[in-house]
Nucleic acid binder design. Structure first.
Length: 231
DNA sequence: ACCCAGGGTCATA
DNA sequence: TATGACCATGGG
């Protein structure tokens, strides 16, 4: 294993300084409870949060936002409720699978209290739950110390110039977790949230480096912000 | 009329 | 292990 990369901690400091006043989707103040996070993590797959949230709202209004109801609800009805978030048949099936996993664990409270390894194993064994979705649930619903690696994370750190030896989920996660040895779950919640906010507004496919708080430490920004080079 | 969005599964080689 | 089709809606 390699030594912690000091750039990662610096990026966190800079993002936190820029965004610490913001609220984020899945912050304890924003969500109604863990089921918002769990269902939201599935609904947001390959979609914008805006549309995922609309589906979440429909589920809530239908009284379906709890594992028992989700596991029992008619699949066609569920498809209609989540249609606005795209791939409705896919997401209806996945939501029911997640709900079943929770019920099987003895209910939401028991599920969220599972030991780290058990929680992870049961999530990953659930249809429709891959590593990112499992980690988002572990971090934001069960408050476990895991770094959620998503497309935003890879884009941001790739541009900064921080990359793991292999472009795999595990390698990215290991690099980022080991770079912040003293970080707890709350810090990782904020870190991921700031990355999302930052990538939505600044670090986009067509980036706005001129207004980026990270530009001083970002190789990509130096090449793309129009800043005069040293020659 | 494009292209993309906070993924994951499945088939194929 | 690695790559690509597929899912399907909303917004730029």
């Amino acid at each position: 294993m390699s030594r912690p990369d000091p750039l990662v901690a610096r990026v966190y400091e800079q993002l936190d300084a820029a965004y610490h006043g913001e609220t984020w989707h899945w912050s304890p103040h924003y969500v109604r409870g863990p089921m918002d996070v769990i269902a939201g993590a599935v609904l947001v797959q390959h979609t914008t949060w805006r549309n995922a949230e609309r589906a979440l709202e429909r589920l809530h209004e239908a009284g379906a936002l709890n594992p028992e109801r989700l596991a029992a609800i008619d699949e066609e009805r569920l498809r209609d409720l989540v249609r606005v978030s795209g791939t409705p048949s896919v997401k209806a099936r996945r939501l029911r699978a997640v709900a079943h996993t929770i019920v099987e664990a003895g209910g939401l409270a028991a599920f969220l209290a599972l030991p780290d390894a058990e929680l992870r194993a049961r999530l990953l064994a659930t249809h429709g739950v891959g590593r990112e979705t499992a980690d988002a649930i572990a971090l934001y619903a069960a408050e476990r110390r895991v770094f959620v690696v998503d497309a935003y994370t890879k884009r941001l750190f790739s541009r900064i110039g921080v990359r793991p030896p292999a472009d795999s989920y595990d390698a990215w996660q290991r690099l980022l977790e080991e770079a912040m040895p003293a970080a707890d779950a709350t810090l990782f919640q904020r870190f991921h949230a700031w990355i999302v906010l930052h990538c939505k507004s600044i670090c986009r496919p067509a980036p706005r480096c001129e207004s980026c708080v990270l530009r001083a430490s970002c190789a990509f920004a130096r090449d793309h912000s129009g800043a005069p080079s040293s020659r």
